[in-house]
């Protein structure tokens, strides 16, 4: 298994008003790994993803993404962030897929996928469209390229959202509960796409409630509760854990 570290989260804390959402959290992800993050609501799983993707600012901690420093602690233990250009470079090296897809409703499916490469990477429209069409083909959505998001089902929209993230050629992709907003029948098609990304050795961190999927696909499972990591290990280890809190949580998902 590849050992180069692609994400390093070290002693990160984040609170909203007086509520501690992340408490001295540490996590490391290696290139090519698939890591699933599970845990009850409010455990800080989404906040962790949002902090790494710069949608929230950590109060303290060291975060390194793809070898670049996102933030580091000053001598008072407060997180100091890198400059704008460095932050932007990091944003371009990782992707995030949201629970509610957040496609751009006024753009066709094709334009949703080509917009960022054209506007940010300055790719030519032609090249961006070719890449987009290839991605749509892989996802089985070629016939939808001229459609608009409102015409697609939730599962289709989420797959387009994944294509949109992939079009930027990220080194790793984060998924924030990618199937939680979908009807059960539609989760399968999205999980299939994520499975194929894993087969292509894409480094991924997936926050999910789909336990069977997490168990099947992940190299590592992280169980979080109230801002800290309770347990971390292979799917086998975590799902047969003796740890009280872990067993309690997993009981709700046993079938």
């Amino acid at each position: 298994m590849p050992t180069d570290e692609i994400l390093s989260v070290s002693h990160v804390s984040k609170s909203f008003d007086k509520l501690d959402v992340l408490k001295d959290m540490s996590l490391s992800v290696s290139s090519g790994e698939v890591v699933s993050v599970i845990g009850p609501s409010g455990s800080g799983k989404s906040t962790l993803l949002r902090v790494v993707n710069q949608l929230e600012r950590a109060e303290s901690g060291d975060i390194r993404v793809c070898g670049q420093v996102l933030c580091h602690n000053d001598d008072k233990g407060r997180a100091v962030y890198s400059d704008k250009d460095a932050l932007k470079a990091i944003r371009l090296s990782i992707g995030l897929v949201f629970q509610s897809f957040h496609l751009f409703p006024h753009y066709s499916i094709l334009k949703n996928i080509t917009e960022a490469p054209v506007q940010v990477l300055k790719t030519s429209r032609e090249e961006a469209e070719n890449t987009a069409r290839e991605l749509l083909k892989k996802l089985g959505l070629s016939d939808k390229e001229s459609a608009f998001p409102y015409q697609l089902s939730g599962g289709q929209q989420q797959r387009v959202a994944i294509a949109r993230a992939l079009a930027m050629n990220p080194q790793m992709i984060f998924f924030d509960e990618p199937t939680s907003a979908l009807d059960p029948e539609l989760t399968g098609e999205v999980l299939k796409v994520i499975r194929s990304l894993a087969a292509d050795h894409m480094t991924m961190v997936i926050v999910t409630h789909e336990m069977a999927f997490a168990a099947e696909l992940s190299d590592r499972i992280i169980f979080m509760d109230q801002g800290v990591i309770i347990e971390e290990g292979t799917p086998q280890a975590v799902f047969s854990s003796d740890h009280e809190r872990t067993r309690q949580f997993l009981q709700n998902y046993s079938k």
Partner: peptide, 22 residues
């Protein structure tokens, strides 16, 4: 929805680009 602005942000679009285009 602020989610669209967040999606644009993580894709690398600038504040200005997001405002004008999205």
């Amino acid at each position: 929805p602020v989610g669209q602005q967040e999606a644009a942000y993580v894709l690398g679009l600038s504040q200005f680009q997001t405002f004008i285009r999205i």
